[in-house]
């Protein structure tokens, strides 16, 4: 979009013509997207519009059929790239938390630090306890995840994702599986991460939250980016007819 500034500071993430199809079904149809450092980008769109698949391709869990993905200028969609190394640089939070049920909350949080980043256990645990304390879950450090509420589990999952200091955080519908009264605590944590300068790409159905926290909102429909605009403009003066329809449907309930 704004080429001059992009050349000055390299975007954390750059997608160029990313395509992904399952058989005849084209899920991502030429996605171009830049995410600058400290930027928060919200992906919105109906179910099946390709939001989740897009996040999965960024994390190299899903292979691209065409186009390229650049992480700080390095083409990571190249099959010769060490995918584990790339994934270690990206944090992911899932809709259903996906905490490891056989590990304590603290072990969940420190696992990647210890195994992937080779941080000594004592240091990893000190940092893990610090993080858990920051979200008020220090008392649950030695407990197993099934003792936690959904909101607590999701917050622990977020802390697990950021424990290794990833360059980019991907959030995939992180509040969709939660009871309504638990959504707030998770969104508050995401908000504080965004305020703290974490670079975030999040797929979400929470329009009010996207408007409040995101710098940019990207509207996907049938695997294409229909509109990519600053959050305020996106909600107040969308340019595209389809965006207006989508928002109208959402506001109608």
């Amino acid at each position: 979009m704004n080429a001059p500034s992009a050349s000055v500071t390299e975007p954390v993430l750059r997608l160029r013509g990313v395509r992904r199809a399952f058989g005849d079904h084209v899920v991502l149809d030429g996605i171009d997207l830049d995410v600058a450092a400290h930027e928060v980008v919200a992906l919105v769109g109906a179910s099946g519009s390709g939001k989740s698949t897009l996040l999965r391709t960024i994390n190299l869990i899903e292979q691209v059929d065409d186009g390229e993905i650049l992480l700080r200028g390095e083409e990571v969609s190249d099959p010769r790239v060490d995918a584990d190394g790339v994934r270690a640089r990206i944090g992911v939070v899932f809709q259903h938390y996906n905490l490891f049920p056989h590990l304590s909350v603290l072990d969940n949080v420190t696992l990647a630090s210890r195994l992937v980043h080779r941080v000594p256990r004592a240091e990893a645990e000190r940092r893990g306890l610090e993080l858990l304390a920051s979200i008020g879950l220090a008392d649950f450090a030695r407990a197993f995840p099934d003792r936690l509420s959904g909101g607590q589990q999701q917050r622990a999952a977020i802390v697990r994702a950021i424990a290794t200091g990833p360059e980019l955080l991907l959030l995939d519908e992180v509040t969709s599986a939660l009871d309504p009264e638990l959504v707030g605590e998770v969104l508050a944590l995401v908000r504080s991460l965004a305020d703290g300068g974490t670079t975030i790409v999040m797929a979400t159905h929470e329009m009010a939250f996207a408007r409040e926290v995101a710098d940019r909102v990207v509207f996907l429909d049938a695997g294409r980016i229909i509109e990519d605009a600053p959050a305020r403009q996106f909600f107040e003066a969308p340019r595209e007819e389809r965006t207006r329809e989508f928002l109208a449907r959402f506001l109608a309930g």
Partner: peptide, 9 residues
């Protein structure tokens, strides 16, 4: 998926 996303081999 969660484990691989954390960078585990």
């Amino acid at each position: 998926l969660a484990a691989r996303s954390l960078g585990l081999s």
